[in-house]
Design a protein around this nucleic acid. Structure first.
Lengths: 219, 219
DNA sequence: ATAGTTATTTAGGCTTACCTAATTATATTT
DNA sequence: AAATATAATTAGGTAAGCCTAAATAACTAT
């Protein structure tokens, strides 16, 4: 029904739209799928005919409700598989993405529902991202980047806004993990680096680049 | 490195060779892959160039050692996934084949080794088939079809030689499962039907077609 | 508003894995 | 051994998903 390529295009469009809030350009898609812009134009025309997206020449694309549902389902599967890899197979949070990219395309609704049950119906994946339910609904999240918090703020690390291996490995090396309590002691006005206290113990200095990608919420 | 199609061709060749003991014909491959004979000839030439099989015009194909290792690895993955589906996700033995057909193509050696560990290094899959180890070695099996046994024989059901849903469902309905003790009470000379006793309790009549596909071993 | 730059699309091609129809081998009967 | 049937191969073609190079459209800056 939906080919591997289609699933990846829809997922990429969904993620780019989520990030930018606008229609998704040919070049941004080309970038994130590592495919030439010409191929994007071709493909995008084809899936527009299938009503998975709307496409206006030179004005980018947008998911239709149908396309959005497919994209969200792929994301649901991806995140459930990541939970499985970490909780049942002992993988680290920086080792699961590539494997989940393959597993997300396995087609079987019963499989995913059983997996969900096996995992205890998790609400978030190992990076703190929300897992949509079988109907494609996301729970509400009240997380915000630590960057948006003031000195004196105290909250819990509940997710990351950047999933690169290097960032995840940096956090691991720095002994920072989801669930940790973070208190902002001071913010350096010059470079926006944050002095923080982790779990009421360790003092740490975090660069602007880092605090931008740490998502926190009230305890 | 190895495409989905290649993996499926190699697996099909392996299984047909296992069944017949001879070189594998174009038409048998066409049958089992549901692809035209012409396409088989094409493809077979291509993977012969890659030294995955040997091919002699009009004389069928044979796996090379390299091709055999790839085929066995796919089978290893397939069977491990089947164990997972049954033991961890509560699927029935007649529900796992199609899902495992997809999962077997996921590429990650670490994944498979972790899965193997998670499952406790199982030796057989839910149908009693041996699971080769990471090096492609199969354990020795001393199973034989119940059909080859005489009246008075007593053994344990350890596998099935036929994996169709209808056969598996027949066994389930008949309350026959792996591990059951089977004693041969009598064999009807006319139609080769077997009168048996299961777990020292239930008497059952099994047709020749059925006993041919039940694999038993000494207790 | 025009020139220059960047983004997008069009045109023409390629590879993979399939197909049908026609041809040639191989097996089976008589 | 010839005739017939079956199996395998060749020839020519298709769809999906990509490519490069050239053309056009859309922005940016002066």
């Amino acid at each position: 029904m939906t080919s591997l390529a289609e699933e990846n295009y829809l997922k990429a469009i969904y993620k780019l739209h989520e990030k930018t809030g606008t229609t998704v350009s040919t070049s941004s898609l080309a970038d994130s799928l590592s495919v030439s812009a010409a191929s994007i134009t071709d493909f995008v025309k084809k899936i527009a005919l299938k009503k998975l997206i709307t496409y206006e020449k030179s004005k980018g694309v947008k998911l239709t409700e149908k396309g959005r549902q497919i994209a969200i389902n792929i994301i649901r599967k991806h995140r459930l598989w990541e939970v499985w890899l970490v909780t049942k197979l002992d993988f680290k949070w920086d080792e699961v993405h590539e494997i989940a990219e393959q597993l997300e395309h396995v087609v079987s609704d019963e499989l995913i529902e059983q997996l969900d049950k096996h995992l205890g119906f998790p609400k978030t994946d190992p990076h703190g991202d929300l897992i949509p339910d079988a109907k494609g609904q996301f729970a509400k999240s009240n997380s915000k980047p630590l960057l948006n918090c003031n000195a004196g703020y105290k909250g819990k690390l509940i997710g990351v806004a950047e999933h690169s291996n290097s960032f995840l490995q940096y956090l691991t090396k720095s002994n920072l993990k989801l669930g940790d309590e973070i208190a902002v002691i001071a913010i350096e006005a010059y470079d926006y680096s944050f002095e923080v206290k982790i779990n009421n113990k360790d003092r740490k200095l975090l660069s602007k680049e880092v605090v931008k990608n740490l998502l926190v919420a009230e305890i």
